[in-house]
């Protein structure tokens, strides 16, 4: 089910005039990797559940963070969650991520917007937060 959805989406994304580079990563949970334009530093990983589509991009790891700045960084991330459009900060294991979620039956337009926004947000976030890195 999830695989069909993601494969279908990959085809539809390839047919858009936008420059998307899609690659399916099979696993326990199938993931579609999408590179938006030339933002290959922030591939977006899409996975689907019964009800929603998740868009995740990895920002940095715990190892990148200056321990003295860590609390300040976490607070800054919390503060920025609302200003950042369509995306929010989170953490998976020791990786900090930026993610978005959409209904599974979202239109292609909505998904395209989500992908562009997320990749650009990730670039902005990394540049904005560089003072916290080692």
């Amino acid at each position: 089910m999830a695989t069909t959805y993601l494969k279908d989406l990959a085809i539809r994304l390839a047919e858009t005039p936008d420059n998307f580079d899609c690659q399916l990563i099979p696993g326990d949970v199938d993931v579609l990797q999408v590179v938006v334009d030339d933002l290959e530093e922030f591939p977006i990983y899409m996975s689907v559940s019964d009800t929603q589509v998740l868009f995740i991009t990895y920002l940095w790891t715990e190892a990148d963070v200056n321990p003295e700045q860590r609390t300040t960084m976490l607070e800054a991330m919390l503060d920025m969650n609302i200003p950042i459009p369509l995306s929010a900060f989170s953490r998976i294991g020791d990786r900090y991520v930026l993610f978005g979620a959409a209904r599974r039956d979202s239109s292609l337009d909505a998904i395209v917007t989500e992908l562009h926004t997320l990749a650009e947000n990730a670039l902005d976030a990394l540049e904005a937060m560089q003072e916290f890195f080692l």
């Binding site: 696993g27 949970v29 993931v31 996975s47 995740i56 998976i92």
Partner: peptide, 16 residues
């Protein structure tokens, strides 16, 4: 869906 999403995200991370 909360349980499944948590599970799915971690499995997806493993796959990635």
């Amino acid at each position: 869906s909360m349980v499944k999403t948590t599970e799915s995200v971690h499995k997806a991370t493993e796959a990635i």
